[in-house]
């Protein structure tokens, strides 16, 4: 008997139950795969064209993406200026790729990020270097999703560490503030935090002073994410044996140095999975900013499908948007697994 046959016998038809499952699975695949291939590939319409072409082809309407992808990716940003958000997104993704490399975790990386955020802002806002000014109300799509997710994560993470330390602090006032904050924010849905940030927050500002809508959503996301991250970080802190704190104390390191050099490096390493989990959640939750009137990737995709002629092909549109989300989230997930392995090497 040849190798594939004996493999199939052992793994697919090892017992009556497994034979039955194999047959059922094959039947299911037979039902699902050919129509799917037919729809997505054979009967699909590719390349530029109008909705008529899709109707004639009968399958998936990838023409929609060719025609509408710029609206989906960049929302209502002025059409002739789309190279600016495209460049801004490319800049962010490039920097994310650089940051993924552990050898680049040096002080200059923080500076690089600050610079990138400034360039991002300059590109998106314009008004400098001869770029036409663009209001944030016209921002949308992927750049908006990215800037909210990345900045919310970048600010929430250090903030959450302070909250977690505060929750374990020996000073009752600091502990009470941290606990109060975490419990309050965790006790309400993100939607209401975003509403608070965008509707209630301006009420407390002096007359005539306004804060940008994107910034308000960003603040809301950051505050929300920080509370959840803080609990993940606290889990890590609790897992560190008391002896580590004592050894650091006995060397006279003092509180901040012992946290920074001894406790946090170990604690954060332990909680990479829940932390990345929260990052992924945060990235996807950016789609909720639509409720305060911002056009993130999902909302922009939805708007791009609003044209009655294209509306029958919303599945293709949403599939494409989902794929973009998936790429980012899957990357984060794989990266965290790699990072865990990489950090585990050598020690223990």
């Amino acid at each position: 008997m040849s190798r594939p046959l004996s493999w199939a016998k052992a793994n697919l038809f090892g017992s009556p139950a497994s034979s039955l499952l194999t047959v059922l699975t094959l039947a299911l695949l037979w039902q699902v795969v050919p129509p799917l291939v037919d729809w997505a590939l054979i009967g699909a319409s590719w390349g530029a064209g109008d909705p008529e072409r899709c109707r004639a082809a009968g399958g998936a309407c990838w023409t929609l993406l060719t025609e509408r992808h710029r609206l989906m990716l960049f929302g209502v940003y002025p059409y002739d200026q789309h190279w600016r958000p495209a460049l801004a997104v490319a800049l962010f993704i490039a920097l994310l790729a650089i940051s993924a490399n552990r050898r680049c975790w040096k002080p200059w990386l923080g500076g690089a990020w600050a610079l990138a955020v400034m360039i991002f802002a300059a590109l998106m806002w314009g008004g400098v270097l001869g770029l036409a000014p663009v209001e944030t109300s016209q921002w949308g799509g992927l750049p908006l999703t990215l800037v909210i997710a990345v900045l919310a994560i970048a600010v929430a993470f250090p903030f959450s560490i302070l909250l977690a330390l505060g929750r374990r602090s020996g000073l009752p006032a600091i502990r009470a503030v941290s606990v109060g904050y975490i419990e309050l924010v965790r006790g309400v849905p993100l939607v209401s935090v975003l509403f608070m940030a965008s509707v209630m927050f301006p009420l407390f500002l002096p007359e005539g002073m306004t804060i940008d809508k994107v910034l308000r959503a960003l603040v809301g996301m950051t505050l929300f994410t920080a509370a959840y991250l803080a609990e993940a970080v606290r889990g890590g802190l609790q897992a560190i044996p008391r002896g580590q704190f004592e050894a650091a104390d006995a060397l006279g390191l003092g509180y901040w140095r012992s946290m920074r050099l001894i406790i946090l490096p170990q604690a954060l390493r332990l909680v990479i999975p829940p932390i990345v989990n929260q990052f992924i959640t945060c990235f996807k939750d950016t789609s909720l900013v639509t409720i305060v009137g911002l056009y993130d990737l999902l909302a922009a995709s939805k708007a791009a499908l609003n044209d009655p002629a294209w509306r029958p092909y919303f599945v293709e549109g949403y599939l494409a948007a989902a794929l973009v989300y998936f790429c980012f989230c899957f990357f984060m997930s794989r990266y965290s697994q790699w990072l865990e392995r990489d950090l585990r090497q050598g020690n223990r």
Partner: peptide, 11 residues
């Protein structure tokens, strides 16, 4: 100070 359980920094 030297501890019973060493308490070296594992990382």
């Amino acid at each position: 100070m030297v501890f019973q359980s060493f308490n070296l920094f594992p990382h």
